[in-house]
Amino acid sequence: MNERMIHRHTRLSIFMHWFNAFCWFALLLTGLGLIKNEQLNPVGAWFPSLMRSLFGGGENLLMVHQYLGLIWAGAFLAYVLFKRRETWAFLKEVFTVSPASDMLWLVKMNLKMTMGRKGLQRFGLTPDMPPQGFYNFGQKLFAQASVVGGVVIVVTGLVMFFSTISMDNPGPAAWSRVIHYLTVGVVFAGLLVHIFMAAISREERPAFMSMFTGNVSEHYARHHHPLWHAQVATEKDKDD
């Protein structure tokens, strides 16, 4: 492909993304394996039993979960500490929304993804999408959930971790587990969409590829992230 490519993700970002993906996946599986209770088993008793057999007992499973969680949180903490500017930029980006156009984008995107252009037409909507920046609104929503959820998960996780080390009251651990589980559940619901959009749908295939290469085609950028493209173009002009 001879099209001009635009740099979208640094190597560190790409690493952090996949590191995060791995941790989430592992933490989700081990965490799910930790729930072993007739009234709670989200997927049935076979799963925690299987995980315990694989790990040689619930205590090992817990330990892997706890320390992996600490490594995961630690890596992000390091990122935040050493890449303050990038962190700030990222947060600013994902938490900046223009409600009117973004909501419209969301509605349109939903219709488009489930019913196609006909769906848009059926509701009397034009096929063009409201322009999106570096992240589209869907990505922003998921990023917001990940950031907020991540903080909640880390905090509640730490409470549970320190419960038997230094906490004299069992209450916080009990409630932390409830919140931990709820948050993971909600973020996981978003994650399913994220995975589909990024890895399965054709729509965002270039974005998925950029999570390996770091670059997207100018065409894709202009089409999917026009505001970002415009910004990049301006900066480029300046540089030129």
């Binding site: 589980y181 709820l182 559940g185 996981f188 619901a189 399913l192 969409v193």
Partner: peptide, 18 residues
């Protein structure tokens, strides 16, 4: 919480399926 999580994940999975 358990029903809420199940419903949320279920709806999400349904959307993806569609």
């Amino acid at each position: 919480v358990n029903p809420v999580v199940k419903v949320a994940v279920g709806l999400s999975a349904l959307g993806v399926a569609v």
